[in-house]
Each structure stands twice: as C-alpha cells, then as structure tokens.
C-alpha cells in the first residue's frame, strides 16, 4: 500500500532543504560568524542541510519512500 502521508512528507522535506540552500534565505546565511563546529557559518549551513537531507534520503530508501515495494 502507498503511505501517502509519508511520501508527501519526504517530497516536502526535500523541497524545504532545497529552499534553505537555494532561495534568497542563503543570503541571510551568507556570513562568516558565528563559527560553528570549527567552520565558517556559510560552510556550516550548507553542510548541515546537506547532511540532514542525506539522512532523510536514507530513511526514505529504507521505508521505500512510503510506496510499494517493487519487485
């Protein structure tokens, strides 16, 4: 069965990450300070959203993106 809510969640979450990285919001993150985890803020910002999205994609794969198993 298709778990519609889960599928929509994954798609929406991906759009949110892309929005954080590619919308004008990036101009707010476009700064050196504060240094976080030893990185300039912009580097940290990109690294953070990228890592979050990569983990999300892994969970999505494990749950088959909320869709059918296709074999």
């Amino acid at each position: 069965m298709v778990n519609r809510k889960l599928y929509v969640f994954y798609i929406t979450a991906t759009f949110i990450v892309l929005f954080m990285l590619e919308s004008p919001i990036i101009l707010i993150a476009n700064r050196v300070e504060p240094f976080l985890l030893g990185m300039p803020f912009l580097v940290f910002w990109v690294f953070f959203w990228w890592l979050l999205c990569t983990c999300l994609f892994f969970v999505a794969y494990k749950t088959n993106w909320g869709r059918h198993s296709n074999n």
Binding site: E22, N30, V32, F35, G38, P40
Partner: peptide, 30 residues
Amino acid sequence: PFSLFEQMRAENIEHLTLPGPQGDSGYLSW
C-alpha cells in the same frame, strides 16, 4: 581543516562568503 578555516578567517575572509574575492560570484551565480 579547522586550522585552515581559522587562517582563512584571519587572512582571506572574503573567500568565506558570497560574492567571493572578485565580487562576481553572488546569489544569481549560486
């Protein structure tokens, strides 16, 4: 890496944010 970022902040801070040291690589390039 961490020391690298510290030194970049001290010596080449313009490399750490858009539009970069030449000023030509801003949001629209991004």
